[in-house]
Amino acid sequence: MTKHKLWRFLFYFLITAAAIVFLIPVYLVLITSLKDPGAINLNSTWQLPKVWYWQSFAEAWDLLAPKFVNSLILTVSATLLSAFFGSMNGYILSKWRFPGANIIFPLMLFGMFIPYQSILIPLFKFLRDTGLYGGLPGLILVHVVYGLPITTLIFRNFYAEIPDDMLEAAKVDGASFFGIYSKIIFPLSISGFVVVIIWQFTQVWNEFLFAVVLTKNNSQPITVALAQLAGGEAVKWNLPMAGAILTALPTLLVYIVLGRYFIRGLLAGSIKG
């Protein structure tokens, strides 16, 4: 038994050490963002600020607020649209089997793995020719389309667990395609929607490549603004750190409040879920 206790102690020690290492960057970001820029220097890097300096957050917020709103519009629209279409597709692919579905599905899935550089130039031309370049609607469209594979996948796996008998019974009662969806499938898929929405929300909010290439100044999402803030010149680190916290806040909140669903989305991304 003492040996067992020794092991337990070792486990606790290791995991606590790991947790501390993981939290070190978080700690540094927090204290740096709360320091007077004049007080950020070598010898006190690790110390708590002597005076709590909230000014950086106000400044960062002034700079980032319009982009924060852009990101919010973009993320909410793209998430809801791709969740809706994903659920439709998942419903069709799992419950209305038709010839060729087994070919179409993997072809759709491949879309979530491609490096987006490989479609960037034509995508850019397409948006230009359709007049969607530079604004949020174009970016929303892009995120919806490239979000379809993963949302379809998650919903398809989710609906595979709803027994076909339920649907057959409804069909016998005369329910139509949409009837079945709105009376059976949709009510049963609330937690599926939560998983998908959280997943898409994090993905779209955090995305950078499309954001930097396809938007102009006043429709930039927040990630582009943060990269600019931090990549600028003569960096005083309090401001980028405050900006990083503001940028991270929405996804962080979602993660902390709904972590269980977040992990499910994470696992679903590896196909078999």
Partner: peptide, 29 residues
């Protein structure tokens, strides 16, 4: 513990990059 280890997953690579850029400065954290 699980929450802590998964926390970075919810961040944007841009946020992570900004944070680590500071941590790894020659005179950084």
């Amino acid at each position: 513990y699980r929450t802590i280890f998964l926390l970075p997953m919810s961040l944007s690579f841009i946020v992570t990059g900004t944070i680590w850029r500071w941590l790894l400065q020659p005179k950084g954290g």
